[in-house]
């Protein structure tokens, strides 16, 4: 049994998103396994980023349920009960459940602990790398600073919290190899460093699920390699599950435990990397042919060509 079936952290159920007449995501259901790296792939315009925006609360889905079990297991019956109450969150015997589709974006990050990065990097360009990572610890620090009152008085407990936050930021900078650039503005870093810094910033929020939107876009092969090892490190050393949109198949196949494929807003394949790689539907979608049979024919031809 796969982890996404036995212990899902997020269950996307019948999710649809319409913009006027355009259906960007159409009745998509899949699960994200706890501790897995789940890749979301599909041709351009398949609705991957829209799906991400629904999960992270930037869009309100037109339809569907996003049951997120931050801790424990989301028992089907209890999720259903929670759905009926209309509440956003329940601490149940079986675990801590959030209905992401009912929550505003910042609460999804702050309470459900789903962090994300963006396709076009959204660092705070005019702030230093260190500041970027400290801003990410905003809610914890806000609490420690007594909503600024203890902070204004500079009480010891606040100073300790601040030191700890800087230490955490420094540790992440060291981990992504940017400690020497801590005091440089984020906007002045090279592109690849910015990508890694954005991931580190998302990690500083202490997420249970990390959503990465094309983290390898624009990276050279060496940088993609570094990225893959960073992601594996996050999965192995932290209690963080990863959901990743990626076009770079070498990265996807190397690191992911589970691959979900979208095409024209609909789910066309869902399984292990090996299963998806050989799924005729996926090949058809990527080759742009209309059905699986035709795709098999094309693949066979390519195979024959390359064996010659």
């Amino acid at each position: 049994m796969n982890r996404w079936m036995t212990d899902p952290i997020l269950r996307v159920e019948h999710l649809s998103m319409r913009f006027g007449g355009l259906i960007a995501v159409n009745d998509v259901s899949f699960s994200v396994g706890r501790g897995d790296i789940t890749a979301l792939i599909g041709p351009n315009g398949a609705g991957k980023t829209t799906l991400f925006n629904c999960i992270t609360g930037f869009y309100k889905p037109t339809q569907g349920r996003l049951a997120f079990a931050r801790e424990g297991r989301a028992d089907e019956r209890e999720v259903r009960a929670l759905t009926r109450t209309g509440k956003r969150h329940a601490r149940l015997a079986s675990g801590d459940i959030y209905m992401l589709e009912r929550m505003p974006d910042f609460e999804i990050a702050a309470k459900a602990r789903v962090a994300r990065t963006f396709q076009n990097i959204r660092l705070f360009a005019g702030m230093t790398a260190l500041e970027n990572l400290v801003v990410a610890q905003h809610n914890a620090l806000m609490h420690a600073s007594g909503w600024s009152i203890l902070g204004l008085l500079s009480v010891p407990s606040w100073r300790r919290a601040e030191t700890a936050a800087i230490e955490m930021a420094r540790a992440w900078l060291a981990r992504i190899g940017l400690e020497h650039r801590a005091d440089d503005p984020a906007g002045a870093l090279p592109y690849g460093d910015q990508r890694r810094l954005e991931i580190a910033r998302a990690m500083c929020t202490g997420p249970a699920l990390l959503c990465l939107d094309e983290p390898a876009a624009g990276l050279n092969p060496r940088e993609s390699g570094e990225l893959a090892s960073l992601l594996r490190l996050i999965r192995d050393e932290h209690v963080t599950s990863i959901l990743i949109i990626e076009h770079d198949m070498s990265v996807v196949m190397k690191i992911s435990d589970h691959v979900v494929v979208l095409d024209y807003g609909a789910l066309i394949s869902d399984g292990t990397p090996d299963y998806v790689r050989n799924d005729p539907n996926v090949i058809a979608a990527y080759l742009g042919v209309s059905d699986a049979a035709e795709a098999e024919q094309v693949v066979a031809e390519i195979a024959r060509e390359s064996h010659k």
């Binding site: 910042f106 660092l123 702030m127 905003h138 909503w147 600024s148 204004l152």
Partner: peptide, 29 residues
Amino acid sequence: IRLRRLPIGRAWEALREDEIACRSLGVNT
């Protein structure tokens, strides 16, 4: 000057830099 060095002040500046990123980090904008 003091607030600038507290989380609230950094959140203000982060807001000026990029509001959407702020929300993605759980800042109540």
